[in-house]
């Protein structure tokens, strides 16, 4: 494997966004790119990352290799990379270590780290292609703000999507709160758009602890997309350049 990123920033942010959700995971490398799928310890949330080969310049991977990595250790190594550094990830066949090289833009500094790999026997879940009943795109910063505000009211949020908009409702001991985002297009700045497509109305409840955790990915993308269908896990997607993505799945809460 040899994969070179123009700026370490992307990889630093991706790892930062998932390291509190999953501790040990395989980065599955093959000729289409670097992928990762891992569930949190409670098996309630799942992260699915794809960094496509086109994200790297260049990208070369001659055979499928899983790089089993402790994300806490990786975070320590990535601290040594400045956001603007060129990052190269390298690995041999059947590796014991992954090699990370950080180069300053002006090429006067080269840092090189070897990170020990671990054997991780990871369960992969099959995520079916789903036609979601409702898809809502909104500014990622707005979603983060809504989740963190409502977490102060309640542990759970009900998300309701209709043609008019998407409503987040929390009911707690101190009272209730709700935030509605109405569909709208900002002609000046499409990053501010709220776009809803719907085949049927959806109402589901989710843990805000997990949703606020997903929002650690906010810096990766201006917009976030929520995909919902009744009685299936929510998908929260941060789309990245070159068809790369960071997706989170969260199982719903069901009333008893």
């Amino acid at each position: 494997l040899e994969a070179r990123l123009e700026a370490a920033d992307l990889f630093k942010k991706v790892v930062e966004a998932i390291k509190d959700l999953v501790q040990h995971c395989n980065f599955d490398c093959n000729d289409s790119g670097i992928a990762l799928q891992a569930m949190d310890n409670s098996h309630v949330a799942l992260v699915s990352m794809m960094l496509t080969a086109d994200t790297f310049t260049p990208f070369r991977c001659d055979r499928n290799i899983p790089l089993g990595i402790d994300l806490t250790s990786l975070t320590k190594v990535l601290r040594a990379a400045q956001s603007s550094d060129i990052l190269t990830i390298k690995s041999e066949d059947a590796p014991d270590v992954v090699n990370l090289v950080f180069e300053g833009k002006d090429q006067d500094r080269i840092s090189e780290y070897d990170l020990k790999l671990m054997d991780i026997d990871q369960e992969h879940l099959g995520i079916p292609d789903t036609e979601y009943a409702a898809t809502a795109s909104m500014p990622a910063a707005d979603f983060k703000r809504i989740c963190s505000d409502l977490l102060l009211i309640s542990e759970a949020v009900s998300i309701e999507c209709t043609k008019e908009g998407i409503t987040f409702k929390a009911e707690g001991d101190i009272g209730n709160g709700s935030v509605t985002l109405r569909q709208h297009s900002d002609l000046e700045n499409s990053d501010k758009n709220v776009d809803i497509s719907l085949t049927e109305p959806v109402a589901l409840s989710f843990s805000l602890k997990y949703l606020t955790g997903f929002c650690k990915a906010t810096g990766l993308s201006n917009q976030v997309r929520l995909c919902l269908s009744n009685d299936v896990p929510l998908m929260v997607e941060y789309a990245l350049a070159n068809n790369s993505y960071l997706r989170f799945y969260l199982a719903p809460k069901i009333g008893d």
Binding site: A45, G126, I127, P252, K253, G255, D256
Partner: peptide, 14 residues
Amino acid sequence: HQYQEQLSTFFKPK
């Protein structure tokens, strides 16, 4: 009261 589902209810191991 609400009960938290697990993902394995929806997604099966590959």
